[in-house]
Design a protein around this nucleic acid. Structure first.
Lengths: 221, 221
DNA sequence: ACTAATGTACGAACTGGTGAGTTAGTCATA
DNA sequence: TATGACTAACTCACCAGTTCGTACATTAGT
């Protein structure tokens, strides 16, 4: 998470809107991710901030809008990571694998993001729908997938009849589930999907799965 | 959901502990799935029941234990479905596909179950941990997978080096994500993963993915 | 007559949100 | 550079409506 910088410059100003807003967002992210939308307490968020509850309402308007702002920033982080991705020089197989691993790594490193998205789904994605920022932006990953897929399909390397959105869903589902369902899965089956010792195992499993699917020999028809 | 039977027998008793308990569980399932643990209201659950809030505390003890009971029943439903599964007569490929489709169908038909599990994960699976019933039961599906996998690997048909738990995770991730993340995915990418018109497409995609993974030619390694 | 089951009424603690007043920083002007 | 007007940033106290849980009275069924 983009964090608040240290105690500000020396002799720093006591008033700093940007810092205050960022600090509220930081704490709110943690609190919402920890307890869910209704479980999160505005008072608790305020208490863990150097400012007061009144400021939350001053800057964000209310709990609902605060959660929306938290979501917007969280989605911004992954969108940025996806934009960094450079796979133009790789062959389709390596490119897809790299892309999948990016999602894998991001989700593992941002469990709060996963929790926020889970929470947003419980609430029918109403905050995304209400957000001007989040409504229209397609994932940069989608464009990348589209290009790779086209190249791989043209060369006959990829035999699967999928489009970019479906492939994105496939990759996301594995990466997302591993983090989002870590607790129930661990409790029921006694295996920690996010165990660091198993990280490479699952990372390879994801790539193998996607590549196998894309390059499998299909029965005609 | 196992529902409450009709108005009870004629001249029926006004007092019927079993029916009252079942009705509370039915309504509680809906309410928890709709609003999350903290979003759910005990008063609301009681209001939608033919009984009163007092009965919830009389039979279940409290909100926390009520949610646990709801979870226990929901997991019971899928466990039962898995036990019905008969794939002994099928070859490994068909058997795995059948199993995957069972999970696919169940998750699609029980969105409330998916939501409950998502909610339980937000709360660190603490209710599962606290439940005697849920703590120890391994999924029947796991035993089935184990047998199929062994048979497929022995015959050399399955080349992948996975165990039953990992394969179960792979299948579940796709089926679960499709339902759990339906709303955010739809809002962000404009595609409804649970669109009935696309049902067969995704059902086939799941099977193709799993089989391709299991039977892919691996680089010696 | 005795107990399990049920209904009524209530309260203490919380919870999101706000009204009203205060202070720090900025900037135009003398 | 001193000053005073102006506004963004901030604090404090408080409220109205909830929300989980329970004490107590009551009734159905055996």
């Amino acid at each position: 998470m983009t964090s608040v910088e240290e105690p500000a410059r020396t002799g720093g100003r006591i008033r700093d809107a940007a810092r205050t807003k960022a600090e509220i967002l930081d704490v709110a992210t943690q609190e919402f991710a920890r307890a869910g939308y209704d479980g999160a307490r505005v008072d608790e968020i305020a208490a863990r901030t150097r400012t007061t509850k009144r400021m939350i309402y001053y800057y964000f308007g209310g709990k609902e809008q605060l959660f929306t702002a938290v979501l917007e920033r969280a989605y911004g982080v992954i969108r940025e990571a996806e934009q960094q991705l450079d796979v133009e020089h790789l062959d389709p197989v390596a490119a897809i694998r790299r892309l999948a691993e990016l999602t894998f790594d991001h989700h593992e490193q941002h469990p709060d993001f996963i929790r926020l998205v889970s929470i947003e789904n419980i609430h029918g994605a109403e905050h995304i729908a209400a957000s001007a920022k989040l409504g229209k932006i397609g994932s940069p990953a989608l464009d990348v997938i589209r290009r790779i897929l086209e190249s791989g399909q043209k060369s006959g390397l990829f035999t699967a009849d999928v489009d970019a959105v479906d492939l994105h869903a496939m990759i996301s589902s594995f990466c997302f589930f591993r983090v989002s369902n870590r607790h129930t899965f661990g409790a029921l089956f006694g295996r920690d999907l996010v165990d660091p010792a198993q990280r490479e195992h699952y990372r390879a499993m994801l790539g193998d799965m996607v590549i196998a699917y894309l390059t499998a020999e299909r029965a005609a028809g």
